[in-house]
Write a protein that binds this DNA or RNA. Structure first.
Length: 357
DNA sequence: TCTGGGGTCCTAGGACCC
DNA sequence: TCTGGGGTCCTAGGACCC
């Protein structure tokens, strides 16, 4: 039988830090943005399992974590280090199975062909042990006939476990879980499902299908399929190049004046331009996103007729788009909390053209 | 009381084309 | 003077993921 092994790293950013701060192993610790003496606007990215019972958790505002700062070791995020670590683990998984796919910075999956179910458990334990021995990193493993179910299984396996779901057990494994446990079901969809009487996955089987479609649109089909244990026979995902690249910044205080905002967007554009150059990538569409002080957001975009590469062209267009947003009637004299700049329509640039352009 | 920064995917309306 | 049915592309917004 063909099963999918899903590898999900435990408390990944923190686990990366523990490899270079062994003195913090088994202590309460968090990776969180700069607290700025309690005025920081960031969040906690990862809390160690020792810090969680004390109330620390990911996505917690830094201002809140700051009130208990004396109870934890506070580490600032170092994304280049986490990306490099992730890359090493991915390279190992690819050496184990050439079809391995990275699904996020701390998740990956690969298919296996096995003769007996007990081999699934053996493979899960083996890959988990190898990752621990080679990289000193803990992980949780889910194995099942489908990518989505294996992901759910890896969540159930946390921390440090291996959960195997046999093909015949998929429906009963999912039945008792809250719908929120399914990938793709967030707070909004959870609310919509609750309103039609579906709190657990098994409830999805009882809601009349047209009612479910009215509640959650095109998601209805795949949700019911999962609940009934009907597994999709999707192709194994190809490795795809990125579709967009962006940068954003949240200011310490909401910004009003156009001059600072123009400088802000220029600095995002220059940093994005360097990344594009590093990747040898052209772009065609530029999007500026503004998050106002009240946390509502707008975005505006504009496309070039042909892929382009110049950083100053990017900056000029971004500034033009931003001026448009700032002078729109919808602004209502609000200040800007967060500024984002994204380019889409990425296009590889061939090296010969690079010098020519 | 407060809520980052990096992404993907889906939907929907309008312009435009045959 | 009024007009179908098919398609693509652009733009804006929003849900969701880690």
């Amino acid at each position: 039988m063909r099963l999918i092994v899903y590898v999900d790293m435990d408390a990944f950013y923190l686990s990366c830090e523990l490899t270079r701060h062994p003195e913090l192993v088994k202590t309460p610790a968090i990776v969180a943005h700069d607290p700025k003496e309690g005025k920081g606007r960031g969040v906690v990215l990862t809390a160690s399992y020792e810090a969680r019972p004390m109330g620390f958790h990911s996505a917690m505002p830094v201002k809140e974590a700051w009130r208990q700062k004396d109870k934890v070791a506070w580490l600032m995020p170092d994304f280049p280090f986490y990306e490099a670590t992730s890359g090493k683990v991915m390279a190992y998984l690819k050496s184990r199975c050439s079809l391995a796919r990275a699904l996020s910075i701390d998740e990956a999956a690969y298919p296996i062909e096995i003769a007996e179910l007990k081999d699934a458990e053996i493979e899960g334990r083996a890959v988990q042990r190898e990752i621990r021995e080679r990289f000193s990193l803990p992980s949780s493993i889910g194995v099942s006939p489908s990518l989505a179910v294996s992901k759910v299984a890896s969540d159930k396996a946390k921390p440090g476990g291996v959960v195997v779901v046999a093909p015949k057990d998929v429906s009963s494994f999912l039945a008792v879980l809250p719908v929120r446990a399914l990938p793709g079901v967030g707070p909004v969809t959870e609310g919509a499902l609750k309103r039609v009487g579906a709190e657990k996955v098994e409830d999805l089987k009882r809601v009349p299908f047209p009612k479910l479609v009215r509640a959650v649109g095109s998601m209805a089909g795949s949700l019911v399929a999962l609940a009934e244990g009907r597994l999709s026979d999707e192709e194994w995902p190809e490795e795809l190049p990125p579709k967009s690249m962006g940068a954003m910044v949240t200011f310490d205080e909401d910004l009003d004046d156009e001059e600072s905002l123009m400088k802000g967007v220029a600095s995002l554009g220059e940093s994005l331009g360097r990344s594009l150059e590093g990747k040898g990538s052209l772009y065609r569409t530029v999007t500026v996103r503004v998050r106002w002080g009240d946390l509502s957001a707008v975005q505006r975009s504009q496309s070039f007729p042909h892929p382009t590469c110049e950083t100053d062209v990017l900056v000029k267009l971004a500034q033009k788009i931003l001026r448009g947003i700032l002078s729109s009637p919808g602004r209502n004299s609000r200040g800007v909390r967060t500024l984002g700049l994204t380019v889409q329509g990425l296009h590889p640039q061939d090296p010969a053209q690079r010098t020519l352009l």
